[in-house]
Design a protein around this nucleic acid. Sequence first.
DNA 1: ACATTGAGGACCATTCTAGTCCCCATTAAA
DNA 2: TTTAATGGGGACTAGAATGGTCCTCAATGT
Lengths: 155, 155
Amino acid sequence: MLRLSKMSDYAAVVMAHIARYPEQAHAAAELSEAVGVPRPTVSKTLKMLMHAGLLQSRRGAQGGYRLTRTPIEISVSEIIEAIEGPVAMTECSQAEGECGLAATCGVADNWQRVSMAIRQFLDSVTLADLAQKTPIKMPVMLPIQSVSLASISDA
Amino acid sequence: MLRLSKMSDYAAVVMAHIARYPEQAHAAAELSEAVGVPRPTVSKTLKMLMHAGLLQSRRGAQGGYRLTRTPIEISVSEIIEAIEGPVAMTECSQAEGECGLAATCGVADNWQRVSMAIRQFLDSVTLADLAQKTPIKMPVMLPIQSVSLASISDA
DNA sequence: ACATTGAGGACCATTCTAGTCCCCATTAAA
DNA sequence: TTTAATGGGGACTAGAATGGTCCTCAATGT
Ligand code: SF4
Ligand code: SF4
């Protein structure tokens, strides 16, 4: 279903929560309760976000997590990538692991473009957008055909 | 990685292959060889595409599969949905199965919009786009902020 | 000192995925 | 009418990924 993993979802929820009070340090326990996700799981998520450089932590009393950047400077694609790796629809859309069918499949090139379009879109959505209460408006996406089908000439 | 499943990828490849000769019937064996995917797997994929109404089949000698519509009338989102169900990033982006955090998470609404934007985009990419040899051009996507953060006024 | 809080990583259960196989139904052609 | 081609349906399996838990150690403020 082209579904985000639950962990990514948690990550987004947690990040959004932190983004609403960016100045405070948020302990894992606090976030766990606020969000309704068991502590160990939330902790794991936080660790991943930290490794990705989206959060900084301080241990000890009064410690916790806070954002390394302002919510406007964090994109949802970064959050997703922190949890599940690069946003890529097909195997061939990542640098590594070229799929064996690349030679015969004939769609690799176009898939990569589609994939890139989605990545760019996700780049353009920020944590601030996600966290705000008022629903964000949808971006205008020009139908792909309008630019592509015009110039077909080969086989 | 927000990755398409392999099956969906196969489906796309196979559909693209058929789309290049829409008039002929394509036997599973033929497609299997053309695409380099083992017969049983390709067969399974074809069955799914048929159930979704994207292909029609005829059994017996000279039988095989062909498209039910022209390639321009088939969107890649339909192909994906045929294999892995509705394109939805979060659990709450589908009608059924509301996730338990819906009340507390505070991002459901915005995720749904992001999800819908992607779905719409995928709707706009057709099988013809995918199948053509010349690389498709990317659609222009206006950054979401430009439309969202400016005009916040509603609830 | 000591209570708090994160770091790191092992570990497990369950689900999903990819892939295989078998047997039956239909159709065209010999 | 027989036969060969071809899809339909569905059960089945091995393996990977996912979601989630737990334990112990390190840091830090009071
Ligand atoms: S598009 Fe082609 S090359 Fe890319 S992953 Fe799919 S089959 Fe492999
Ligand atoms: S966004 Fe909120 S409601 Fe939607 S799936 Fe994630 S947690 Fe559940």
